[in-house]
Amino acid sequence: MSKSAKAIAFLALAVACTGGAFAGERAGLGRPALPEELKAWDIDVRPDGQGLPDGKGSVSDGEALFQTKCSSCHGEFGEGAGRWPVLAGGKDSLTSDRPEKTIGSFWPYTSTVYDYIHRAMPFGDAQSLKPDEVYALTAYLMNLNDLVPGDFVLSRGNFPKDLPNEKNFYDDDRETTEKTFWNNDPCMSNCKDKVEVTGHAAILDVTPDDQKDNKDEKPAGAVE
């Protein structure tokens, strides 16, 4: 073995040692995922349509399914029951005191409807729907939001990307628009002339009380 070949061999050995016992780039743990496993778990659908399966569904099939599997929470026409999410309507409400953030009024992409129904609905029986059923429910919800006609049949081939409100989303810009909040020398004394109380939580009286049953109170603001 020539001197340079020996040097290369030594170098290779050194690299192998580093990569083995003392944690190099790869530990060699885990095993290759099989195609069937990827198919079972990789269910996400993107706005560009990546992940949409074969299949199709009509507005009318979706309506029938919706009344059976969805309307007890979301209402017959997606208007929502109780505090369950409203899915349709809310047009032009986003600047009002009570915005209704529905698929038609707020959501940016159609793919999210398909992805979420398949992923998490019906609530308590997730991932039970077949692709044709998810296409049909998506079509019905688009119809409820006046986005497609009643005879529409949705499939991967005609799956729309953007919903009407897509243009009104933009990336986080707090560091520029709110840069006034960076201040190395905030006021410490006599920062305002007078201080007045302008609002009281006690007036609303919606705070849970271990001694009192007020769970039916429904003031403004909710999470889902």
Binding site: D42, D48, W107, P108, T112, R119
Partner: peptide, 14 residues
């Protein structure tokens, strides 16, 4: 999963 764009899931849009 690694990808080249965000997935616009329900919890990052709606």
């Amino acid at each position: 999963e690694v990808g080249d764009q965000p997935w616009a899931q329900r919890e990052e849009t709606s």
